Measured scan of single mutants.
Amino acid sequence: STHNELEKNRRAHLRLCLERLKVLIPLGPDCTRHTTLGLLNKAKAHIKKLE
């Protein structure tokens, strides 16, 4: 159905954006896999440090 396709595309776009963010944020050497929340929290902390 159309709704399923739209949802699939939305999730794919979100995944792509999170992958791009992961490249930009210093995550530390001990981190190989992150939850979305963990990645967003690290991004928030990094932005605050830059301010």
Results as ranks from 00 to 15, higher is better:
residue 49 K to W: 11
residue 46 H to E: 04
residue 34 H to K: 15
residue 26 P to D: 06
residue 36 T to M: 14
residue 38 G to T: 10
residue 33 R to T: 03
residue 7 E to C: 07
residue 12 A to D: 05
residue 16 L to E: 13
residue 8 K to H: 08
residue 37 L to M: 09
residue 29 P to Q: 12
residue 5 E to T: 11
residue 50 L to N: 03
residue 27 L to V: 11
residue 44 K to C: 04
residue 22 K to H: 02
residue 3 H to V: 11
residue 2 T to E: 09
residue 45 A to L: 10
residue 2 T to N: 13
residue 30 D to S: 15
residue 14 L to D: 07
residue 32 T to F: 15
residue 13 H to A: 04
residue 3 H to S: 12
residue 32 T to V: 15
residue 26 P to N: 12
residue 41 N to E: 09
residue 10 R to I: 07
residue 13 H to N: 13
residue 31 C to P: 12
residue 1 S to A: 03
residue 22 K to G: 03
residue 2 T to C: 05
residue 32 T to I: 13
residue 48 K to M: 02
residue 38 G to L: 06
residue 40 L to V: 10
residue 39 L to V: 07
residue 26 P to A: 15
residue 21 L to I: 09
residue 19 E to F: 02
residue 12 A to R: 06
residue 46 H to S: 14
residue 24 L to P: 00
residue 19 E to A: 08
residue 36 T to R: 08
residue 23 V to T: 14
residue 33 R to Y: 10
residue 5 E to P: 09
residue 12 A to V: 05
residue 1 S to V: 07
residue 34 H to A: 12
residue 25 I to F: 09
residue 40 L to R: 02
residue 31 C to M: 10
residue 31 C to T: 11
residue 46 H to V: 13
residue 16 L to G: 14
residue 45 A to G: 05
residue 19 E to W: 01
residue 44 K to N: 01
residue 37 L to Q: 09
residue 47 I to T: 03
residue 40 L to Y: 03
residue 51 E to Q: 08
residue 41 N to Y: 01
residue 13 H to D: 03
residue 29 P to N: 10
residue 38 G to P: 04
residue 7 E to H: 06
residue 39 L to F: 13
residue 22 K to Q: 00
residue 2 T to W: 01
residue 19 E to P: 05
residue 47 I to C: 04
residue 15 R to Q: 05
residue 49 K to R: 11
residue 23 V to K: 15
residue 15 R to P: 08
residue 31 C to I: 13
residue 36 T to S: 09
residue 51 E to A: 15
residue 5 E to H: 05
residue 46 H to W: 14
residue 8 K to V: 06
residue 35 T to E: 04
residue 51 E to M: 15
residue 5 E to Y: 10
residue 19 E to D: 07
residue 51 E to I: 04
residue 6 L to E: 03
residue 11 R to T: 06
residue 7 E to F: 07
residue 22 K to A: 00
residue 38 G to H: 09
residue 22 K to N: 03
residue 34 H to Y: 05
residue 51 E to Y: 15
residue 29 P to R: 14
residue 20 R to C: 01
residue 40 L to W: 15
residue 1 S to H: 07
residue 18 L to S: 04
residue 17 C to A: 08
residue 34 H to P: 06
residue 41 N to F: 02
residue 23 V to H: 15
residue 34 H to G: 13
residue 41 N to H: 12
residue 45 A to Q: 13
residue 38 G to F: 03
residue 32 T to L: 15
residue 8 K to P: 04
residue 4 N to G: 08
residue 30 D to C: 10
residue 10 R to L: 10
residue 4 N to K: 09
residue 47 I to E: 01
residue 31 C to S: 14
residue 29 P to M: 15
residue 5 E to N: 15
residue 5 E to V: 06
residue 41 N to L: 01
residue 33 R to Q: 10
residue 44 K to G: 07
residue 42 K to F: 07
residue 41 N to I: 02
residue 5 E to M: 13
residue 37 L to W: 13
residue 28 G to D: 13
residue 39 L to W: 13
residue 43 A to P: 04
residue 30 D to L: 14
residue 28 G to F: 12
residue 34 H to I: 08
residue 46 H to F: 04
residue 16 L to W: 12
residue 40 L to T: 02
residue 14 L to I: 12
residue 51 E to S: 15
residue 6 L to R: 14
residue 19 E to T: 04
residue 27 L to S: 13
residue 26 P to R: 14
residue 50 L to E: 02
residue 24 L to D: 00
residue 37 L to I: 11
residue 18 L to Y: 06
residue 38 G to I: 04
residue 17 C to T: 02
residue 31 C to G: 12
residue 4 N to S: 11
residue 19 E to L: 01
residue 37 L to R: 14
residue 24 L to Y: 08
residue 12 A to L: 02
residue 17 C to K: 07
residue 3 H to F: 14
residue 14 L to H: 09
residue 12 A to M: 08
residue 11 R to W: 07
residue 22 K to M: 01
residue 22 K to S: 04
residue 3 H to Q: 11
residue 34 H to L: 12
residue 48 K to S: 02
residue 12 A to H: 02
residue 46 H to L: 11
residue 47 I to W: 12
residue 23 V to G: 15
residue 40 L to S: 00
residue 8 K to W: 05
residue 3 H to N: 09
residue 37 L to N: 06
residue 16 L to Q: 13
residue 8 K to S: 06
residue 36 T to E: 04
residue 29 P to W: 15
residue 22 K to E: 00
residue 2 T to I: 07
residue 34 H to V: 12
residue 23 V to C: 15
residue 16 L to N: 10
residue 34 H to F: 14
residue 6 L to C: 09
residue 51 E to G: 15
residue 21 L to G: 00
residue 2 T to V: 02
residue 14 L to W: 14
residue 51 E to L: 09
residue 4 N to V: 05
residue 21 L to D: 00
residue 16 L to H: 03
residue 33 R to A: 06
residue 36 T to A: 13
residue 27 L to A: 11
residue 36 T to N: 09
residue 35 T to Y: 15
residue 28 G to S: 11
residue 11 R to F: 05
residue 30 D to E: 09
residue 36 T to I: 11
residue 21 L to V: 02
residue 50 L to Q: 05
residue 38 G to D: 07
residue 5 E to C: 00
residue 32 T to S: 10
residue 2 T to A: 06
residue 8 K to D: 03
residue 35 T to I: 10
residue 51 E to N: 15
residue 41 N to S: 10
residue 49 K to Y: 01
residue 26 P to G: 15
residue 32 T to M: 15
residue 1 S to F: 10
residue 42 K to T: 08
residue 28 G to Y: 13
residue 39 L to P: 03
residue 20 R to H: 01
residue 13 H to P: 12
residue 26 P to F: 03
residue 15 R to E: 04
residue 27 L to D: 04
residue 41 N to Q: 02
residue 16 L to I: 09
residue 5 E to G: 07
residue 49 K to P: 02
residue 34 H to D: 04
residue 12 A to Q: 06
residue 35 T to D: 05
residue 27 L to E: 05
residue 49 K to T: 02
residue 12 A to G: 10
residue 30 D to A: 13
residue 18 L to D: 02
residue 25 I to E: 05
residue 23 V to D: 09
residue 47 I to V: 06
residue 28 G to N: 14
residue 6 L to T: 11
residue 24 L to V: 08
residue 42 K to E: 01
residue 32 T to P: 06
residue 14 L to F: 13
residue 43 A to I: 08
residue 29 P to D: 05
residue 6 L to I: 08
residue 36 T to G: 13
residue 15 R to T: 05
residue 14 L to N: 01
residue 18 L to R: 02
residue 29 P to G: 10
residue 18 L to V: 08
residue 34 H to R: 14
residue 43 A to F: 09
residue 47 I to D: 01
residue 42 K to G: 05
residue 4 N to W: 02
residue 25 I to W: 15
residue 16 L to F: 08
residue 29 P to F: 15
residue 21 L to E: 00
residue 19 E to V: 00
residue 33 R to I: 02
residue 8 K to G: 11
residue 15 R to G: 05
residue 50 L to M: 05
residue 25 I to Y: 06
residue 45 A to E: 09
residue 46 H to R: 11
residue 42 K to I: 07
residue 19 E to R: 04
residue 43 A to H: 01
residue 34 H to T: 10
residue 39 L to H: 00
residue 19 E to I: 05
residue 14 L to M: 08
residue 50 L to W: 12
residue 20 R to D: 00
residue 15 R to Y: 00
residue 19 E to Q: 08
residue 20 R to Y: 00
residue 10 R to W: 13
residue 7 E to S: 12
residue 36 T to D: 02
residue 24 L to C: 11
residue 50 L to H: 07
residue 36 T to V: 15
residue 18 L to Q: 00
residue 26 P to Y: 02
residue 17 C to R: 01
residue 13 H to V: 06
residue 48 K to V: 01
residue 24 L to S: 05
residue 1 S to N: 09
residue 35 T to V: 12
residue 34 H to Q: 11
residue 2 T to D: 08
residue 37 L to G: 10
residue 30 D to P: 13
residue 50 L to V: 03
residue 20 R to F: 00
residue 32 T to A: 13
residue 48 K to D: 02
residue 22 K to C: 00
residue 33 R to L: 05
residue 38 G to Y: 03
residue 3 H to E: 11
residue 13 H to S: 10
